[in-house]
């Protein structure tokens, strides 16, 4: 019956996720042309593009990766960042300045 230890000492020992998991989307603002493709394709309206900034709300994001697939400039990538908790709601909103 013995199975040995199957649990891990997280967070004392960091968890290394598999490659290719859908963690937080990352926006490369050098490539972004603010053409709103990601905003339109987002199924949960988590992305908002204003004239000077791009906001991604990780509280709404479902990590589907549609934005990364759709961006014609390859400005969005899905990272394996998964430790996204925040004590404040605002802490889930990430703001990126749009380069003119």
């Amino acid at each position: 019956m013995g199975k040995g230890v199957v649990t891990e000492r997280y967070p004392n020992i960091p968890y290394v996720p598999h490659d290719g998991i859908h963690g937080a989307p990352s926006f490369n603002m050098d490539k972004c042309r603010s053409d709103k493709t990601c905003e339109e394709i987002c199924p949960t309206d988590a992305i908002h593009i204003e004239p000077d900034q791009l906001c991604i709300d990780l509280g709404l994001c479902i990590f589907c990766g549609d934005c990364a697939l759709a961006c014609p400039h390859h400005a969005v990538t899905m990272t394996n960042e998964f430790e996204l908790a925040s004590k404040r709601r605002k802490g889930l909103v990430r703001v990126h300045a749009i380069k003119q």
């Binding site: 199975k3 199957v6 996720p17 290719g20 998991i21 859908h22 589907c64």
Partner: peptide
Amino acid sequence: FILRERMMDVNDLLTGSRFLRG
């Protein structure tokens, strides 16, 4: 539950989602 976790881990490994989303 250990076995279930192993299967969900393999889902994660293959697709990036434990619940096969996306």
